[in-house]
Simulated scan of single mutants.
Amino acid sequence: MTMPVDPCAAQTMRLEATKPAFPALEGRHPCFSTTAVGHARSARLHLPVSPGCNIDCAFCIRDFNRRDQRPGVATRLLSPDQAVEITERALELCPTINVIGIAGPGDPLATPHALQTFEKVHARWPELVLCLSTNGLMLPERIEEIAAVGVTTLTVTVNSVDPQIQAQITPKIAWQRRRLDGIAAAERLIANQLDGIAKAAALGLTIKINTVLIPTVNDDHIGTLAQRVAEAGAQMINIIPLIPQHGFAHLPAPGMMKRYVARADAEQHLRVFTHCQRCRADACGIPGVSDYTAQLYGDGISAEPTFSHG
């Protein structure tokens, strides 16, 4: 439901939006830089080391290709050792890289490769910011390991805090070697996401929420979602317009007004990130400015049949 906007609060939010949300990360981490200037000078490297996923989202298609500029896509999978080699090459190509992120192509906590990679990278380049992006299902039981390998910034994709809505978005998950469907799957995912966010906040991680804005599904739910994740300890939200595909191919992408209303609802509770470029899982460079992916990986596509939902 759309929340009524307090004019005074809205004016305060607009004034706050001109200031960096996280001064230590401004100009260093593009996904946590809230000014246009800071975002435009922030280079990052995404390492595609995570092959599998443990949930099945109706908006997601993971693939190996060069054409799609969206999450869940890469040219190839890397082993943790290969990821270290790629990091070294990337730093030579783009010395302004400050952030090493892992965001796929599957979920980084569904397999051990992401945390192994972070441990190796942190040992070699302790000055780099490490960033993990996850669906949050495994977050409560892995958060201690996440912090131990040097991760300080965390993105959790939360699309609903209402099981009836979430069941439409993620109709099945793999949990403790069992498949859960429908409301049971939704309740488990939401509970783990909120618990994991709270535990990450208690450990001092900087937390951003990614939310896919899905017309007729969760577009009237963003204010409630933002309130709940803020109460759990999140500090920022990034509202990503739906790409109509897979199970939501029949839905339209949200228009400008729907995006505006969703952001207005969310900003009553959290800082809203507005510079998202929907980066690939193998992105390298400054989002929307420079791209070194082809130079890192060459022209070939290396696809391996390892994608799984458990």
Results as ranks from 00 to 15, higher is better:
164 Q>G: 10
109 L>Q: 01
108 P>I: 05
103 A>I: 02
213 L>P: 00
7 P>W: 08
243 I>Y: 07
134 T>L: 03
212 V>I: 06
182 G>P: 02
29 H>G: 00
46 H>A: 09
225 L>T: 06
93 L>G: 02
191 A>M: 04
98 N>S: 12
132 L>D: 03
218 N>Q: 02
10 A>N: 15
234 A>S: 10
77 L>K: 04
265 D>T: 15
141 E>H: 15
220 D>W: 03
82 Q>M: 06
32 F>V: 05
282 D>T: 14
48 P>C: 14
2 T>W: 11
173 I>E: 00
27 G>R: 02
220 D>C: 11
14 R>N: 05
74 A>W: 07
283 A>F: 12
270 L>P: 09
116 Q>V: 10
73 V>W: 00
125 W>I: 05
194 L>I: 05
59 F>S: 02
210 N>Q: 05
277 Q>I: 08
1 M>P: 11
270 L>N: 05
90 A>M: 14
113 H>T: 08
82 Q>W: 02
96 T>K: 07
248 F>V: 02
194 L>T: 01
232 A>P: 03
180 L>V: 02
9 A>T: 04
82 Q>P: 00
297 Y>P: 00
281 A>P: 02
153 T>C: 05
245 Q>F: 06
190 I>M: 01
57 C>M: 05
128 L>K: 09
125 W>H: 15
57 C>L: 13
128 L>E: 09
168 Q>R: 15
18 T>M: 11
145 E>Q: 13
285 G>S: 12
34 T>Y: 11
258 K>Q: 15
126 P>R: 07
209 I>W: 01
1 M>C: 14
269 H>N: 14
244 P>S: 06
19 K>E: 13
92 E>T: 15
172 K>D: 04
302 S>D: 10
128 L>D: 08
192 N>V: 00
52 G>Y: 14
279 C>F: 11
229 V>Q: 01
254 P>Y: 10
12 T>N: 06
12 T>Q: 04
261 V>Q: 12
20 P>C: 10
30 P>L: 09
95 P>M: 04
187 E>R: 08
243 I>E: 10
204 G>H: 04
174 A>N: 01
91 L>Y: 08
269 H>D: 05
65 N>I: 07
254 P>L: 08
158 V>P: 01
37 V>T: 08
162 D>Q: 07
234 A>Q: 01
270 L>M: 15
20 P>N: 06
247 G>Y: 15
265 D>V: 07
164 Q>C: 12
306 T>R: 10
289 V>A: 10
28 R>V: 13
104 G>D: 00
124 R>K: 09
149 V>E: 07
40 A>K: 15
183 I>F: 13
167 A>E: 07
57 C>G: 04
21 A>M: 09
135 N>T: 04
259 R>P: 13
132 L>A: 09
117 T>G: 07
223 G>V: 01
221 H>T: 01
91 L>V: 07
299 D>C: 05
153 T>W: 00
254 P>V: 06
256 M>Q: 15
155 T>R: 03
231 E>L: 08
215 P>R: 03
36 A>N: 06
50 S>Q: 06
230 A>K: 00
82 Q>S: 12
273 F>I: 10
113 H>R: 07
61 I>N: 13
72 G>M: 11
153 T>H: 04
83 A>P: 01
79 S>M: 08
220 D>L: 12
204 G>N: 03
26 E>G: 05
71 P>N: 07
20 P>A: 04
112 P>F: 13
162 D>A: 09
18 T>S: 11
14 R>W: 09
43 A>L: 13
